[in-house]
């Protein structure tokens, strides 16, 4: 009991620190808070049935949810992943023991976004499969699902437009990260699809604030800027000069020889 009260007090302090926007204190408090949680008996993996097990589990879940949100604000993706992994068991294995959490949709959506940003598409889909039907209906998850579909299709302009329709301000950091990825993608597509583009169009396509920025980006990627137009000439030469993949051919031939020898 005493331990639970102590942990609850620590959580209040932590929440106060977050509310004050004192993130470094919050981070420090969180570490001690997590240590205190390990002393409780009810949270996984022990699952001991104590009279206060319900409160203990609820507290632990809330702490971890806050931890996830804090790590997003701190822009610490590794900590995010760790915290979410710890939290996940409360949404799966202990689901039947607890009432549904309000923050579940948000944290799940954030996690999906993180996987998208880190380009871990396989894990993204694995996570999608685990989600129950009601989670699929939530706005956060649908948002992430749509983003993934647009990215796969190539409808990048929709992804860029989605910046204004975020379900929660907590997504801001991840959306910014996604934007950089998308810009790279658009650049990659453009240099193959267009012969040339006017600087103004390029700026609009890749969402730069000014023409200068666009020109700087073009030079970074080795495009030629001449008379207000961007020429993607550099790419042409490298793709046309198709050379013979001699090393590959040799290794194939050697494999055939070895295998045939084994048969005969």
């Amino acid at each position: 009991m005493a331990k639970l009260a102590e942990a609850a007090k620590g959580f209040d302090q932590f929440k106060a620190a977050v509310a004050r926007n004192d993130l470094s204190t919050a981070k420090r408090l969180l570490t001690t808070l997590k240590l205190k949680l390990t002393e409780l008996a009810a949270p996984p993996p022990v699952y001991e049935r104590t009279p206060t097990s319900q409160q203990e589990l609820l507290l632990a879940r809330e702490v971890l949810e806050q931890a996830v949100l804090l790590s997003v604000r701190l822009q610490d993706e590794a900590a995010f992943e760790r915290n979410f992994m710890q939290l996940k068991t409360y949404y799966t294995d202990s689901r039947s023991l607890l009432p549904a959490s309000k923050a579940e949709a948000l944290t799940t959506g954030l996690n999906l976004m993180r996987l998208l940003v880190q380009n871990r598409i396989a894990e993204f889909h694995t996570e999608l499969e685990v989600l129950p039907a009601e989670a699929h209906a939530s706005r956060d998850v649908q948002h992430a699902e749509l983003l993934e579909r647009w990215l796969m299709e190539g409808a990048y302009n929709k992804v860029l437009a989605a910046r204004d329709s975020m379900p929660d301000p907590a997504y801001a950091y991840l959306m910014e990260r996604l934007l950089t990825t998308v810009r790279e993608e658009i650049a990659g597509c453009s240099e193959r699809a267009y012969d040339s583009l006017s600087v103004a169009d390029a700026r609009k396509l890749m969402l730069f604030a000014s023409d200068q920025e666009a020109t700087a980006f073009a030079e970074e990627r080795g495009w030629e800027v001449k008379g207000g137009r961007v020429f993607f000439t550099g790419m042409e030469a490298s793709t046309d000069a198709a050379e013979l993949p001699s090393k590959e051919l040799i290794s194939h031939a050697l494999t055939y020889a070895r295998e045939l020898e084994r048969i005969v």
């Binding site: 190539g154 597509c189 193959r192 699809a193 267009y194 012969d195």
Partner: peptide, 19 residues
């Protein structure tokens, strides 16, 4: 955008004219 991506992925052989 979609056509541009299809071109990059090698799905189709084409070029776009933005203007």
């Amino acid at each position: 955008c979609i056509v541009a991506k299809a071109i990059r992925d090698g799905g189709i052989e084409a070029t776009l004219d933005h203007a």
